[in-house]
Design a protein around this nucleic acid. Structure first.
Lengths: 130, 130
DNA sequence: AGGAGAATTGCGAACGCTTCGCAAATAAGG
DNA sequence: CCTTATTTGCGAAGCGTTCGCAATTCTCCT
């Protein structure tokens, strides 16, 4: 079937390198601005398409920020974990959730609620910004 | 100083009664449709304004759903707690988080992260839908 | 009850983020 | 290098949400 490998293109490399550098959630607009500042011209559409593609591949985690804007960050989801987001610099620390298992048990016992998934985010100040 | 008490209006009563009846997160559009079906005509703007007002008063909790749409639910926030959302019927159970204190401690110890707040949501199936 | 005046509503326009369609540009592979 | 599938940029369109303003509704005072 006429299906070729995914193309490695300039825009995709630029976007990937920004995501790799910044260890935090970025909006499409932020990425766009960074590239513009660096002198690289990419359309916003391409950025959205690329981010979507990375998310579908599982290379990127998406999150809607408090303003309702979509943000994206490089993140392997194979190991389930949560995020501690610094209110000052936006840096994200991964936190795993051993305690969650315990929580799920009591949830079922007390509320009769069968847990399928959960979303947990921490907000605060990281070591550097404290 | 010309400041009067808040007006009690037809639209506000309708919206409040829907929120009181449905124990789940509703979008402005959903409320609008329910009212239209019931034969009550209210503009979407009014619904947004009313929901915003209720949120400011602290009577309503807002949440952005997985599609990025804003949803609202009657909920007293005085007592800090979390939500267990049923994937089938959307019903919401309140869950308090004693275990969280413990979690915060280890977060500080292991990550040096000073916790200011957290957001936690459970997804699954409630007793009735299980 | 009646009326003056403030608050609220509805409407349509505008807004910001995101998606879409299509022609032009760019990679991959022979 | 040349062909062809893929990707890009552009502008338009889509969608949820906000805004401005004239018309309406509610309060409070008489």
């Amino acid at each position: 079937m006429g299906s070729r490998a995914d193309y490695v293109t300039r825009p995709r490399e630029w976007i990937a390198s920004i995501l790799a550098r910044e260890q935090r959630f970025l909006s499409a607009a932020e990425i766009h601005q960074q590239l513009k500042r660096a002198g690289e011209r990419v359309s916003l559409s391409t950025i959205y398409r690329t981010l979507d593609r990375l998310r579908a591949k599982g290379d990127v985690t998406a999150r809607t920020d408090s303003e309702g804007e979509a943000t994206y960050m490089l993140c392997e989801p194979e190991r389930h974990h949560h995020h501690a987001i610094c209110a000052t610099c936006g840096r994200v620390e991964d936190v795993d959730c051993a305690a969650m298992e315990q929580f799920a048990k009591s949830l079922r016992k007390i509320h009769g609620f069968e847990l399928d998934g959960h979303a947990l985010e921490f907000f605060g100040r990281c070591r550097a910004c404290r």
